[in-house]
Design a binder for these strands. Structure first.
Lengths: 192, 192
DNA sequence: GCCATTTCTTAACTTAAGTGAACGATTTTA
DNA sequence: TAAAATCGTTCACTTAAGTTAAGAAATGGC
């Protein structure tokens, strides 16, 4: 399981055995049951997540309704906004499937960064990469309809459609579950 | 005019006179007429922009239709995606008003970064800050209707509504110009 | 200043998403 | 295992955005 983490890191920097051991000794690995809420609105937290196995999601509750804005699966990293700006969180983070995560806080990161300055470099590259990806994603969302977004999802993240409940998917696409059902029926009709 | 640039930079790092002079000597400042296209789809470019005065926009042309996804005004920086991934641009950048920009390319940045490592630090902070802002922005867009997005815009960037043509604004809100007209009429009706 | 073009608004009609309700299927839990 | 809760789908109806078209207002070019 640790290999997944090291595979991920090796995309950015190379690690010695010493460095790997230092990471393992931090004891970051956590098993989390489906349905667990990792972060609540209003809460202050220092925890950052990396998904080794499973799926977690970010969602807001607006007028009593859940609005899912992101899913994180294998090899995705999530730094909650409240960690960056040290303010109460605006959103929730919940566990969609039984998952294995690494959970790290600022202290741990400071420790690693102090010992191995390489890590700062990795973080910079990751945040630049993520920013670029995020911008393209945002543009794609803005320039397409719910139906196009659903078709894109089938292309780009087909696993999500299987592993995530329909009502969370609908919310992620910006529509109600009933509309997603209808939209799928419409697509099937067109094909035939 | 240069002061705007230095004010901006001073939010991140402090500059000596020498450093300021080095920047000025790069001759980055450009006056650009309204309507000018700074970057076209398919083009490869190394140019990054910083708006000192005026307004530029990013837009796609999809099925012959302009889709505006961002406006950049005073103190906004824009690094096109094609600069990062060295691939042809997916979008256009156009000048909405007569503007004064700084235009920098990789060579200039390499030169400055070489002379003053401070700049790398500034870039890292900026990209992290931008990433956080971008994520919140994306979430806000996803969780609101066109009408709410318009009302948010009135709150957060009231100047845009005055200085940007309606049809570009509509596109930015994810709707057609006719729908924006109607939506505005609807809001006025509600108020009375 | 005048003509052509672009931009903005309004209107009537179409299409797609929201809403409320019902129903069966699945999952939870007591 | 039985009852309760959640989930996904379908339907009828409402609301908002897309489309097409027309006309008024503003803008730009000559």
């Amino acid at each position: 399981m640790q290999d997944i983490l090291f595979d991920f890191i090796s995309k950015y920097i190379s690690l010695t055995e010493d460095e790997k051991n230092a990471i393992v000794s931090l004891d970051l690995f956590r098993s989390v049951k489906k349905g667990t809420t990792l972060l609540r609105e209003g809460q202050k937290s220092q925890d950052c997540y990396f998904v080794l196995k499973g799926c977690i999601r970010k969602y807001y509750i607006i007028d009593g309704e859940e609005k899912t804005t992101a899913f994180y699966t294998e090899m995705d990293a999530l730094t909650p906004h409240c960690v960056i700006n040290k303010a109460p969180s605006e959103y929730f983070i919940g566990c969609v499937e039984d998952s294995i995560l690494t959970v790290s806080n600022s202290d741990m990161e400071a420790e690693i960064n102090g010992k191995f300055p390489k890590f700062e470099i990795m973080c910079r590259i990751m945040s630049e990469e993520l920013l670029a990806k995020q911008q393209i994603n945002f543009d794609e969302y803005k320039t397409s309809s719910p139906e196009q977004r659903y078709l894109n999802l089938i292309q780009n993240r087909p696993d999500l459609i299987q592993r995530v409940p329909q009502h969370q998917l609908a919310s992620y696409l910006g529509i109600k579950p009933q509309s997603l059902s209808r939209l799928r029926a419409r697509i099937l009709e067109k094909k035939s």
